[in-house]
């Protein structure tokens, strides 16, 4: 049995022939589409390393069956920067040293982008911490991560205001 699907991944429309319905979105990206930036830390929705945005929402790609997706827009870590131009969240993670080994980092960044879009946390660090608690970091880079989210959000807000002006 094979399923043919169309997905928009990082802005590119891709037709995917899936020969096995067991394939998760995470394994599709990593093993079949050469997009290994998204990481597998637990494969059970318990660590957040596999976080991607599907139709604008952050989700665990390890618990998403690829077969179930149709015409979905998927944003992975590989699609966040515009060429050489890093996303403000990426810049902030480097500046705040919100990473050490870097393995959870793609998931942290996708989660942070999702969190900022959700617009529930505002400038409240406690809400950011809670909102980022679905992304484990064994190195313990949490201070930098929280600061990076707050800083990036400010930058994004400022640039949005500039656009409005």
């Amino acid at each position: 049995m094979s399923l043919t699907k169309t997905l928009v991944i990082n802005g590119l429309k891709r037709t995917i022939v899936l020969d096995d319905p067991r394939v998760t979105l995470l394994d599709l990206l990593r093993e079949r589409l050469d997009l290994p930036g998204t990481k597998k830390g637990c494969d059970r929705g318990q660590c957040g390393a596999c976080t991607v945005l599907v139709n604008g929402r952050r989700i665990n790609s390890c618990l998403t069956l690829a077969a179930s997706l149709d015409n979905a827009e998927i944003l992975t870590i590989e699609g966040v920067a515009q060429g050489e131009q890093l996303h403000p969240v990426q810049d902030a993670f480097i500046a705040c040293d919100g990473l050490q080994c870097g393995y959870c980092t793609p998931g942290q960044i996708m989660s942070a982008i999702g969190l900022i879009q959700e617009a529930q946390a505002g400038d409240d660090a406690e809400r950011v911490r809670e909102g980022m608690s679905g992304n484990l970091c064994r190195c313990g880079a949490y201070q930098g991560i929280t600061q990076a989210v707050l800083d990036a959000q400010k930058v994004m807000r400022a640039s949005k205001q500039q656009e409005v002006v």
């Binding site: 093993e31 290994p36 992975t76 870590i77 590989e78 890093l86 990473l99 980092t105």
Partner: peptide
């Protein structure tokens, strides 16, 4: 700041399991 920071925040840093040589079996 980390010299490998950009690689790590863009997903370009290649960890062992990210490699996929031709003819790969699992």
């Amino acid at each position: 700041t980390r010299r490998d920071g950009i690689l790590k925040v863009t997903g370009a840093a290649r960890y062992a399991a990210d490699n996929h040589p031709n003819g790969l079996a699992y």
